[in-house]
Simulated scan of single mutants.
Amino acid sequence: MMTEYDAVLLDLDGTLCEYTRGTEQLLPAAFERVGVEPMFAPEAYVERVDSYADRADSMLERRRLCFADLAAEHGYDRQIGREVADAYAAERDHSNVRFLDGAAEAVEQLAERYPLAMVTNGGPDMQDPKLETLGLERYLDSLVYAGYEGPAKPDPEPFERALDALGVSADRAVYVGNNYETDVLGAASADLSSILVGEPPASGPVEPISTVSTPGEIPRALEGPSSDRR
């Protein structure tokens, strides 16, 4: 018999939503917006941008530092790199995110039954536009920007902060995410059970209580024989 939980914690990216355009589409559009030829490949940006995390307070500033260095390395002025970073941010606007299939309905159903908290890696500058576009704020009782004001997932701290905000103990809550390493193992580090959206690895130290193929299946995965299904 599955436990009847008192609260649900949710991941955002890849669990509830996805970008309509990825870096492969956004970077060429940013170069075109600035009026310069592509000076580096998307892979170069993806490989290096996280190395600037300790030097920047936001994803935008991290990207501006990265693009400036890449521009200089390819014989361009560093300011051009910063302009491309700003153009990239403009292209990656509110319209560039959408719900995964069934996610909007799932969140609405969950909010009718549970207090909801979100624990997402990324700062407000990166995550708030998505939440605004998707209209998710009205469903959330707590929001933790992991990696912004504290350690990122899979560290237990962001999960513990969400639980404290809800006033719920770990054994009475469940976390839903799509990444085994950051979500399933991270939740376990805070003594939380988890539901994985996707397939778990063939072997791993922790098993989620359930796996689902799409976010639309999350409410059903939380229904045990004793659940209130009114």
Score class of each variant (00 low, 15 high):
S51G: 10
R63L: 04
D171R: 12
A173T: 09
E181R: 15
A44N: 03
N178R: 02
D11C: 05
L222A: 05
D11P: 04
D13R: 02
A152N: 00
P215S: 09
S95V: 00
A87R: 12
V8Q: 07
K153N: 01
A68N: 01
S142R: 12
M1Y: 06
A162N: 04
S169A: 14
R172V: 02
S142L: 01
G122L: 06
M59V: 14
N178G: 13
L16N: 07
T120R: 01
L26E: 05
S193A: 15
G147Y: 01
P151N: 00
M59E: 13
V168C: 09
S95D: 15
E137G: 09
A146I: 00
G177M: 09
V197I: 15
E83W: 11
E24T: 13
R33W: 04
R229P: 11
A187W: 03
A188T: 01
V36W: 07
N96A: 06
D86I: 05
D141T: 12
Y175H: 15
I209N: 01
A106H: 08
R82W: 01
Y180K: 06
D125L: 11
A68K: 11
P225L: 12
L163M: 12
S226K: 12
I195Q: 02
G123M: 08
L16P: 08
P151M: 00
L116P: 12
L192S: 05
A53K: 11
Y5T: 08
T133K: 15
D164E: 15
L185T: 07
L65I: 06
C66W: 05
P124E: 11
L166N: 06
P28W: 12
A146Y: 00
L185Y: 00
D228L: 12
L134M: 08
P154V: 01
E132P: 03
R220H: 13
G204L: 08
L12R: 03
V197S: 02
Q79N: 09
V174H: 10
A56F: 02
S210V: 04
T3G: 02
M126T: 08
